[in-house]
């Protein structure tokens, strides 16, 4: 049975069930909640298409993150193309986070990160990719990727602490 498992590939359904959540978290971190759905769909459809060619024993999660990385970039570029300059930009809801959610500030904090920091944090901490592979994805050295990840974490921590102090202030005098 063990040799059989080593020589075979799981049904794609199992890949979706096991990795779908991680890929969605990564897409959300890169694109925000709204556009993440489209990037997730593009990622898994492309993965399904290519699945028979994936070598047996390959790191499925790293493979999926690589595809998601490209699909997210496609979405960012398409978004930039769609954004035609107008005289009076219409008021827009934030594309990151759910309106009214108490954690919107946090999505904003992630969104405020420069793209490389956001990607490095998502790929390393959500998908568990080593910085060597992240560097390859981002076209930079492993050290630069590691630095981007560390800077991203630092910025997030600062944003969280600011928020925490605000929450603390606003709840002053309230009975818990």
């Amino acid at each position: 049975m063990e040799t059989g498992q080593a020589a075979s590939k799981k049904p794609f359904e199992a890949v979706v069930r096991e990795r779908g959540a991680t890929v969605l978290r990564v897409c959300r971190a890169i694109l925000g909640v709204h556009d993440a759905d489209d990037a997730w769909s593009d990622t898994f459809l492309a993965a399904l298409q290519a699945y028979p060619d994936l070598p047996v024993g390959a790191n499925v999660e790293a493979w999926l993150v690589t595809i998601a990385h490209r699909k997210c970039i496609d979405h960012l570029r398409a978004g930039a193309r769609r954004a035609l300059p107008v005289e009076q930009p219409p008021e827009q809801p934030t594309r990151l986070g759910l309106p009214g959610e108490r954690d919107t500030e946090l999505f904003d904090a992630v969104a405020q990160l420069p793209p490389k920091q956001r990607q490095a944090v998502a790929y390393h901490f959500l998908a568990g990719l080593p910085y060597k592979e992240i560097g390859a994805l981002l076209g930079s050295s492993p050290e630069a990727a590691r630095r981007a990840g560390a800077d991203g974490v630092k910025a997030l921590r600062a944003a969280i602490q600011t928020r925490a102090s605000l929450v603390h202030l606003s709840s002053k005098g309230e009975i818990q």
Binding site: A29, L106, A109, F125, L156
Partner: peptide, 14 residues
């Protein structure tokens, strides 16, 4: 663990 707690909001209605 700390970073994952920062990113916890990404799990909203997952």
């Amino acid at each position: 663990t700390e970073v994952l707690s920062f990113l916890e909001p990404l799990n909203v209605a997952l």
